[in-house]
């Protein structure tokens, strides 16, 4: 039982971060806050993947003499590119927020919905 908890507590805490991120994304009406929630969710997923690649007593996947156990390079490669692509797409989201502010003069989702209903 103790072994099970020690082996899985990392995943549980990462899932807790994911839940907070998802709740931020869905419950807040401010668009910048929503994007921050989305980024938190995304980082939690990335963290989950990288922790899948961890190997006990391993070292960073750079081949050197005197080491034989390395952590798994594949999740690291996938997540490294995902981080950079993630910031680029989040920036597109921010650009949309700026355009929405110009069009509606607000970045609160509720007010935008009201304005849309009126017109």
């Amino acid at each position: 039982m103790m072994d099970y908890i020690i082996g899985h507590i990392n995943y549980w805490l990462i899932i807790a971060v994911m839940m907070v991120g998802m709740f931020t994304l869905m419950s807040r009406t401010n668009m910048i806050k929503k994007l921050a929630g989305l980024s938190i969710f995304q980082t939690a997923v990335i963290l989950f993947y990288v922790s899948l690649g961890k190997v006990e007593d391993g070292t960073a996947p750079i081949v050197a003499e005197g080491f034989s156990t390395y952590s798994n390079p594949l999740p690291q490669v996938l997540m490294l590119t995902a981080i950079v692509v993630g910031v680029a797409t989040t920036a597109v989201g921010f650009a949309l927020v700026i355009r929405i502010k110009e069009a509606y003069n607000t970045i609160e989702e509720d007010e935008i919905r009201e304005l849309d209903a009126k017109s």
Partner: peptide, 16 residues
Amino acid sequence: TVGSVMLLIFFTFARR
């Protein structure tokens, strides 16, 4: 590509 796109994004935002 990554360096120039990041700078381009920042300049475009900052001009706003």
